[in-house]
């Protein structure tokens, strides 16, 4: 099931989406506006594996979570990644 931006907003997780987009933009060298939440990570302009891993580390450090490798291997969209991170943050807060 895909997760859309509106789903994220409903869960008050827009901040997480912002963190994700900012990290991806910063490491791929494009403006934040160029990061389309509906597109796969692989479609981020200028992204390649090492830059993507740098972005992931920034997201993890910012949100204090570890994103499982198995999720990162899948072709997720930017919004799905943000939703997944938001769930990790929520679970971490409940623990």
């Amino acid at each position: 099931m895909s997760i859309t931006s509106s789903d994220l907003q409903a869960r008050h997780d827009v901040r997480i989406l912002g963190v994700v987009r900012t990290a991806l933009a910063g490491h791929s060298g494009v403006p934040v506006e160029a990061i389309d939440p509906a597109k796969p990570l692989s479609a981020v302009p200028g992204i390649e594996s090492v830059k993507a891993l740098r972005a992931i580390t920034e997201i993890e450090d910012e949100c204090d979570v570890v994103i499982p490798d198995d999720f990162l291997f899948e072709t997720a969209t930017v919004a799905e990644l943000a939703g997944f991170v938001a769930d990790l943050v929520a679970r971490s807060a409940r623990a």
Partner: peptide
């Protein structure tokens, strides 16, 4: 810095130890 290729390598290589 945590951002160079060797640092990323160590960080990602050892992630499975945390599973």
């Amino acid at each position: 810095t945590g951002q160079t290729v060797p640092e990323l390598g160590l960080r990602f290589l050892m992630r499975f130890a945390a599973t």
